[in-house]
Each structure stands twice: as structure tokens, then as C-alpha cells.
Design a protein around this nucleic acid. Structure first.
Lengths: 216, 216
DNA sequence: AAGTCTGTGTGACTAAAGTCACCTTTAATA
DNA sequence: TATTAAAGGTGACTTTAGTCACACAGACTT
């Protein structure tokens, strides 16, 4: 079976953005392009400007906050059916982004020219709700993140981090090194190794070379 | 000179929300109410629901994130000409708020019934921009906050905190106790006292009972 | 003036996190 | 198979932050 680019996009929209109004889907389909990233690719980098809004249709993207020395801090995942909140608004206002996004799986996005934002916003109620809801969700997520770094100690943060990973990935098998986890939480490898060891002794997980099994 | 409630509101809007379209101002003026808070009053509390959107016209409000044990963490100020970002969207979606807002000066707000949000959003471009820009600003502010608690040590955080206070208040005289500062940064009074002492010795400020002079 | 409350200063200690050094194990590959 | 690189384990130490105890000073009360 052969599908045109248009049909493929229409298909993506029906699968992951079913809640969009018919006219909205048509309008998006007629003027967006598809962009593909490989696992590990950087989708956008601190200081970069947006020229389009991004709607994810497959894969998984990790959002990081970066500091001056290149240190990273993991914030949250974006998955299919979700938009990059920043691209929705930075795009509309032509502002530079302050975060880094990296694909952790092969990822497909729809790119919508920012020039469409105004029209979509005022024409389609489902788009307006989508934008606001996306922003609200990300905002709440950031608040929870603040809770954790402001109020919790490293062992609690690590536990929550792992829980989030296993939940999001829908598996009990996390393929990450201690060093990578340490980077995401902006701490050192030794600290993570020691805390993981304790969690293993408490029978919460099993440690292996390069991956962790969750016994939740 | 005597002014009607309507005229007073029109006046507020012209002063603090001059960028609103004429029709938008009229619509707001005809259906909003004024609410007043005294310094120290709590405007909203964790878990509460919004029934209206709030536009500040005078005073100053501090936004906190709270944890289960009642610990607080200062996030940012809201001032006249600004809206509570959460009230813009929680209102639209009828969600519970997760933060606490407290007036630090006597404060006046305009309350807009949430039922108006949809119409305003689709009818007035200046409202749509205002909402998005408000959200974007708060989002960026949260990101900066995360930077600080994730990447910086307490002395740097205190320094930035004081700078923000002096800037926002537009004075070199900050009337706060060490205990209050410690609460905002979610640390202990002794830590703040010691760090302030160091900053005094470095000639960055002068310490007094219950207030601090900035020598910036 | 005596008593009390609040705000601040400070030494001594504890706990948590981060660093350093060095080792072992496992996987990859020459 | 021998060699090397990557991942992880662990003891010892330093630094930072938080806690405890108590002293002291200024302001306010009676």
C-alpha cells in the first residue's frame, strides 16, 4: 500500500491528535512537514530560536535544563501526542529557548510554521485548548520538579527519578549507566552507585552492568 | 471628584493594562469586580480551586510552592499589570492550584469570571498575546529558579535572592528578618545569618536589626 | 527598672553530598 | 586469547548545609 505524504500526515494526526477538529487537522496536514531524528540527536539547544512549532508523532524526547559549565538537569519527557510547550510559545513570540531537547528513541515530528499560530489559535477551539493544556501540564511538571530539588534529599530524588523512568518507558528494564543517571540528576557517579546499592539491598531493584531491573 | 465603580475600573485598565484593545477593556470593565487584600493576606492556598482570573492593579504578591510539612519555597513576585498565570489557565480548565499566594503589600485585583475566558481569547488578540506572554514569562522564571536550586550553592542563591528583592522593591532597604529569608529559601536561620555576615564583611551590605541595607 | 520577647551571633557537632584514589568486573576488539 | 576500555564498587577524606545550645542586645511591657 502506497500513501502520499499528505495521507501519512493525516494518519499521524488521526492517531495521535484525534481530539483536533477536522478542519484543524486538514489545515495542519496541508502545511506541515515531517522531520525525523535518530536516538541521541539533539532537537534543539539552549539559545536557539524556534522557527516552527513541533508536534510529536513517534519516539521519545528528553528535555534538559543546562548551566554555563555544560552541566545538565533532566526535566521531563515529551512523547507522541504532545507538543513542545516552549515551541508553542517561544515560536509565537520569537524568543530564544533556554533548554536542550535530545531524542532518546528515533523520533518523528510535525513542523508547523509559526506564521500559522495566530490563525489556528483564534480559529480552532481544540487548538486553543491544546496549547493551554500543554502549557499547564508542563508548568505543573516544573512545579513538581522544584518540589523535589527544593525539598527532597538525593535518595528520594533518585527513587522518584527511577519510578518516572520505569513508568514512562513501560518496562522494568532500564538501560542506563550510573554515570548517565548521575548526569540527569546533576550529581556524581559515586553517589548514585552507592544509593543504588542500598536500594538493591532493600530489594527494590537488581543491578546489572548497564541496566537496572525494577522489582516494584 | 466622584467616580463610579465602572470609571474606577476603566481607570485601572488604562493605567496598568493600556495594551489591551479598547473593546477588551470595555468588556472587562463591564463584568469584573474589584477585590482588595491587606498585606499578609493569603490570596490562594494549595489545593484551592479558581473561580475567576485575577488581574493585579496595585500592590505586590509573593508566590510560594509548599511541601507537605508546611515548608515554603519562594518562587516569584506578581505586580500590577500582571496576571496570575495559574489563574489564567487553571481557571480555564477548572483545575486546583498547587501554590500559595500571599500579599506582601495591600493589594487590589480585578476578578474576571472564568466563563469569559474563551470568548476573550478568541475575540481579542491583545488578550491572547497577554495570556501567552504571561505564561511564557512565568515558565522562564521557573526555569531560572530550577537553575539556581539545581546548580548553585546557598551563598549564590542568597545573593541572587537579595538582588531580586532589592530590584523588585526598588529600594536599598529590605525589611526582613533572617528567619523570613531562610523560610523563602527553605533553609535554616543560622545558615542565612552566617552567610549574611560574610557578605557584610565583604562590604556588600550592612546588617541591622530587622532590615538590611544594600551597598550595591 | 525589671522582666520578657524577638532577632541575631557563634562555637561545636552531625549529616549529606561531593571528591579522590584505586580496585575489580565485564564487554569489546585487536 | 590478550589487551583495552567502560562500568561499577568502595574506603577515606573534604566541603557544605543543617542542628543544637546558648549568649547577648535592643525593644517593648508592666
Amino acid at each position: 500500500m502506497h500513501m502520499s505524504q499528505q495521507e501519512i500526515i493525516a494518519n499521524y494526526l488521526n492517531t495521535h491528535y484525534a481530539f483536533f477538529e477536522r478542519g484543524l487537522k486538514e489545515e495542519i496536514a496541508s502545511s506541515c512537514t515531517i522531520k525525523t531524528f535518530k536516538a541521541g540527536d539533539v532537537l534543539m539547544q539552549s539559545g536557539q530560536y524556534f522557527r516552527s512549532t513541533m508536534l510529536m508523532v513517534s519516539g521519545r524526547v528528553k528535555l534538559y535544563r543546562e548551566n554555563e559549565e555544560g552541566g545538565e538537569f533532566f526535566m521531563y519527557y515529551i512523547e507522541s501526542g504532545q507538543a513542545c510547550a516552549l515551541s508553542l510559545i517561544c515560536a509565537a513570540r520569537q524568543e530564544a529557548s533556554q533548554i536542550t531537547a535530545r531524542a532518546v528513541e528515533d523520533t518523528k515530528l510535525l513542523l508547523l510554521p509559526i506564521s500559522m499560530m495566530d490563525t489556528l489559535m483564534t480559529t480552532y477551539k481544540s487548538w486553543y485548548y491544546f496549547v493551554l493544556e500543554t502549557y499547564r501540564q508542563r508548568y505543573e511538571e516544573l512545579l513538581v520538579t522544584i518540589d523535589h530539588i527544593a525539598f527532597k534529599s538525593m535518595d528520594e530524588r533518585l527513587e522518584r527519578y527511577l519510578q518516572t523512568q520505569f513508568e514512562k518507558l513501560g518496562t522494568s528494564h532500564l538501560t542506563m549507566t550510573h554515570q548517565e543517571i548521575a548526569n540527569d540528576l546533576h550529581t556524581s557517579r559515586e553517589v548514585i552507585s552507592r544509593l543504588l546499592k542500598k536500594m538493591e539491598q532493600a530489594n527494590k531493584l537488581r543491578l546489572n552492568r548497564s541496566f537496572i531491573e525494577w522489582l516494584g
